[in-house]
């Protein structure tokens, strides 16, 4: 997982600045975000994808598991058509590709969001504790992260999936296991600067216990970095899942994901059934674009220095 570290650090500095009188950081950020055209485009794409995933099944004329024997196996009939209700055509087993794409988008979004959520919870707590306590605790905790980061995680993830069953649940566990590492590093860096603030010292002086200080005074100030990072993490999780599903090692039938659909489409494109590749690919690409643009936009909005 690669992030532009200098940008993230600069963002961390910006969100940890004390507020100036007048507009709050968040009001200011909102204004800047809505002036950013790329970010708005990204937001629009994301809203479209989410609506497609949630409401797509109400539009679909077919169920995602029913086989349409009338068009199955005939490349000239199984293409996209409005008249027979297969808006995106059918897949090579004769199932409606529109309904399948809805299903795949749902799973991909879910994997991305859950992976990112695990990263937010585990990474934030881990990083905040390491950063706040410092010293030897910090050294040991961060060395563990360093070691885990150096492992080619995709292989370990596949190892995990193959050995402990290829289910969606296992996929969430596996993706969650690796996603928090970078997050904890960034949160720790931010915590190191926060813990020397006067209000933290004041809290310590009146005897607030460390974990309460972390919860009440450190964590709320981390929100900016965490939100941006979590947004940028979602597409990476989706990529990871799609990668594994493309190899046939991830989500299993009858469940599907965008990666699995792209893989199926890529396998059958010799027969001229290009729509089987094109539609899942389209949704895959606009989802990634959406998250990247929104993430970048949020970062620029929260950190006016970096432009």
């Amino acid at each position: 997982m690669v992030f532009d570290e200098t940008k993230m650090n600069s963002l961390a500095d910006a969100t940890s600045q004390p507020d100036v009188a007048g507009r709050s950081l968040w009001a200011d950020a909102r204004r800047r975000f809505f002036r950013n055209k790329a970010a708005l485009l990204g937001l629009g794409l994301l809203i479209f994808v989410v609506c497609f995933a949630i409401f797509g099944n109400y539009i679909a004329a077919w169920n995602n598991s029913d086989i349409d024997y009338n068009v199955m196996g005939d490349a000239s009939l199984s293409g996209p058509s409005l008249s027979n209700g297969h808006y995106f055509g059918v897949d090579d087993l004769g199932r409606d590709l529109f309904a399948r794409t809805v299903q795949g988008t749902q799973i991909s979004l879910l994997v991305g969001i859950i992976g990112s959520a695990i990263a937010v919870i585990v990474g934030t707590v881990y990083g905040a504790i390491a950063g706040y306590f410092g010293g030897r605790v910090d050294g040991v905790m961060m060395r563990i992260v360093d070691i885990l980061l150096a492992i080619p995680y995709m292989f370990v993830l596949i190892l995990l999936l193959v050995m402990y069953g290829r289910s969606i649940g296992m996929l969430f566990v596996g993706v969650g296991l690796i996603s928090w590492l970078e997050m904890s590093r960034i949160v720790r860096g931010q915590t190191l600067t926060l813990k020397n603030r006067d209000y933290v010292e004041a809290a310590r002086a009146i005897g607030v216990p460390p974990l309460t200080i972390i919860r009440r005074h450190i964590l709320p100030n981390l929100v900016g970095v965490v939100v941006v990072f979590a947004t940028l993490l979602v597409p990476l999780m989706i990529l990871t899942e799609s990668f594994i599903s493309f190899l046939g090692l991830g989500v299993q039938e009858p469940q599907t994901s965008l990666g699995a659909l792209i893989s199926e489409g890529a396998g059958t494109m010799n027969y001229g059934t290009l729509w089987q590749l094109a539609f899942p690919l389209f949704f895959f690409i606009i989802t990634l674009f959406g998250f990247y643009f929104v993430g970048d936009g949020l970062r620029d909005a929260l950190d006016p220095k970096e432009r």
Partner: peptide, 19 residues
């Protein structure tokens, strides 16, 4: 290229240069 990872590039390349 950020949204074209290798498993998307591969089929597209084959589509263009081979098929």
């Amino acid at each position: 290229a950020q949204v074209l990872p290798n498993f998307v590039m591969a089929p597209i390349l084959v589509l263009i240069f081979t098929l």
